[in-house]
C-alpha cells in the first residue's frame, strides 16, 4: 500500500502567517473592488477579484488543509477536482461564447 511519511504537524507560526495573509488579501480585494478598472480593460475587476480569491483558496488548501504535507493521492484528488470543475465551466462557457449571439437579454 501507499508508503507513509511520518505524520507532519504544522507549526503554529505557519497557521498565524497564513491567517494574516488571508486577512491582507481580504482587505486587498475590497480595496481594489472600489476602483473602476473596467475603463482600462472590461473584465479587469473580475479578474483581479478572482485572482485574489484563488490565492486565498490555495493558501487555505495548502496549509490549513495540509495538502502541502499530504500524500500524493490527496494532492491528485484535489487537482482532479479542480480539473473536472474547469471541464464543466470551460466547455459550457465555450459553447455560449461561440454562438452567433449570447442568449437574449431580459427587459432590454
Amino acid at each position: 500500500m501507499a508508503e507513509h511519511t511520518e505524520h507532519h504537524i504544522v507549526p503554529i507560526k505557519v497557521y498565524i502567517g497564513v491567517f494574516l495573509a488571508l486577512m491582507v488579501f481580504t482587505a486587498l480585494t475590497v480595496a481594489v473592488a472600489k476602483y473602476d478598472l473596467e475603463h482600462i480593460w472590461g473584465p479587469l475587476n473580475i479578474i483581479v477579484a478572482l485572482t485574489v480569491a484563488v490565492i486565498k483558496a490555495t493558501l487555505v488548501v495548502l496549509y490549513f488543509m495540509h495538502v502541502r504535507y499530504s500524500s500524493k493521492l490527496t494532492q491528485v484528488i484535489v487537482v482532479a477536482g479542480i480539473f473536472w470543475l474547469i471541464i464543466m465551466l470551460a466547455f459550457t462557457l465555450a459553447d455560449y461564447a461561440a454562438r452567433s449571439g449570447w442568449p437574449t437579454q431580459l427587459g432590454q
Partner: peptide
Amino acid sequence: IEISGLYWHFVDIVWIFLFPLLYLTGFHV
C-alpha cells in the same frame, strides 16, 4: 477532528469566492 477540519475549511473556501462574486461585483460603480 482533522477530517471535520477539512470540511470546515472547504466551506470557508466557498465563501472566499462568494464574497467577491456576489458582494463586490458592483462596488466600483
